[in-house]
């Protein structure tokens, strides 16, 4: 069992949070995990990039140039990582911030979601990241909704616990949208 994902966007889009959820959920399942955030210079200018590798075996490389999944939360992330997606892999693109015509690859499963608008329709743009994570879960053979739900209380700080139901709703919405996209 092996999975990897690169998530990219800008600071404030909640990439840290969803990657943290994925990692904690995997650890809870007894899986091996590596979590590589951007640091130093890369972090300047507010970019956030995270590479997560999950496996039920020892993990060698914590980096990959053909991830099975890319979550691009804005156009800069798409430009950088679309070409890398492994053939047959998935691209989850936040088309609230990415023009549809930029999605060029035909050999991968591209899930385009207007995450910001979908989130707004649930009441707040803040859960756009959860919409994207929902789509990731729908495609992931390793993690499911229950796994994330189980760790949300630990990953979210106390003061946000009241928001957990809303976040779970956003996850489900993301899963529904992704389920409608042919694999």
């Amino acid at each position: 069992m092996y999975g990897d994902v690169i998530m990219g966007g800008f600071g404030g889009q909640g990439i840290q949070v969803i990657s943290q959820l994925v990692v904690e959920a995997a650890i809870r399942k007894g899986l091996e995990v590596t979590y590589l955030p951007s640091y130093g210079v890369e972090k300047r200018g507010g970019r956030t990039t995270v590479t997560v590798v999950l496996s039920d075996h020892e993990i060698g490389s914590p980096i990959t140039n053909h991830p099975l999944c890319v979550i691009a939360m804005d156009v800069l992330a798409l430009d950088k990582y679309q070409a890398m997606v492994a053939p047959g892999g998935s691209l989850i693109a936040n088309t609230s911030l990415i023009p549809d015509e930029k999605i060029e690859r035909g050999d991968i499963s591209a899930i385009t979601i207007r995450c910001n608008e979908e989130a707004l329709s649930l009441g707040t743009a803040k859960v756009a990241n959860m919409i994207a994570l929902g789509a990731f879960l729908e495609r992931s053979p390793i993690l499911g909704f229950d796994d994330i739900e189980r760790v949300m209380g630990d990953v979210f700080p106390e003061r946000l616990h009241a928001k957990i139901p809303l976040n779970l709703k956003a996850l489900i919405r993301g899963m529904e949208i992704a389920a409608a996209v042919p694999v």
């Binding site: 590596t34 979590y35 980096i63």
Partner: peptide, 10 residues
């Protein structure tokens, strides 16, 4: 190297 310093694992 900085990768070992900066990345995270259980």
């Amino acid at each position: 190297d900085a990768m070992i310093g900066q990345f995270q694992e259980p």
